[in-house]
């Protein structure tokens, strides 16, 4: 198939070592490709006989660089609008403290994305995925136990809240922040004949004390 003109060496004249080298390459590449695809298949397939038996081998291979999730809007699309809201406890110059009203941070992102053909990941994914990460790692109940420093998802979500609210609010310094998720079920299609409760449900997070040196600033070198 070498259609090129010129002094190209012809493969037919390959010596035995060269043929062996080619054969070994074929073998290694074939085994490698099929092993890779097998691992990825077991990773994306539902939990099954094989993937349960080799769970640790599969996850050792797939994580971190070949991780993937293609359950896009599956098995069912999300049917609720989750808005992450936040409020702060601020300390006034006179030493008194005050709790602010709730600020709908998701609504601010949504407003920024409206009529924008190129929404930013910081508007579309940041809060949404931070909430997903948090709710995956915390039970459904309103929690009262404070979020420890070891709690990555809790620290992350609250850091977003603190950054969005800023260090000063209502004429005071932000000392603590609290988040909540306002979940509203999307009304069923008019033709479906089903009806659901579309009143907004709230889930409150515990108060979180803002670290004195807000994360990120120490790096501004």
């Amino acid at each position: 198939m070498q259609s090129e003109q010129g002094p190209s060496p012809q493969a037919a004249t390959l010596s035995l070592p060269a043929r062996i080298a080619v054969a070994v390459t074929v073998g290694v590449v074939a085994v490698g490709a099929l092993l890779h695809l097998g691992m990825v298949f077991l990773h994306v397939a539902p939990s099954n006989t094989l993937s349960k038996e080799h769970a640790s081998a599969v996850s050792d291979y797939v994580y971190p660089e070949f991780e993937q999730n293609w359950k896009l809007f599956a098995p069912d699309p999300l049917q609720q609008n989750v808005h992450v809201q936040a409020r702060a406890e601020v300390r006034k110059p006179d030493g008194s403290t005050e709790t602010t009203g709730w600020v709908d941070l998701t609504a601010m992102d949504v407003a920024d994305m409206r009529h924008n053909p190129l929404p930013s990941h910081s508007q579309q994914n940041e809060l949404r995925r931070a909430w997903g990460y948090y709710s995956d790692n915390h039970s459904d109940q309103n929690q009262t136990t404070p979020i420890s420093a070891n709690d990555l998802s809790g620290t992350y979500l609250n850091t977003i809240l603190a950054k969005r609210l800023g260090t000063r609010l209502n004429g005071g310094t932000v000392v603590r922040v609290q988040g909540r998720a306002a979940t509203t079920t999307v009304a069923r299609p008019s033709w479906s004949g089903e009806s659901v409760d579309t009143t907004t449900q709230y889930r409150e997070l515990p108060w979180w004390t803002v670290p004195t040196a807000p994360a990120g600033q120490e790096n501004a070198s």
């Binding site: 809007f73 599956a74 069912d76 699309p77 999300l78 998701t106 949504v110 949404r128 069923r188 479906s192």
Partner: peptide
């Protein structure tokens, strides 16, 4: 995975993302 979802079965799945605030510019 979609085949297993009731909304994909009853033919209304597309309706929901079209009502999600994050995906309706």
């Amino acid at each position: 995975y979609k085949i297993q979802g009731s909304r994909w079965e009853d033919g209304t799945a597309l309706y929901y993302p079209l009502h999600l605030d994050d995906f309706t510019p």
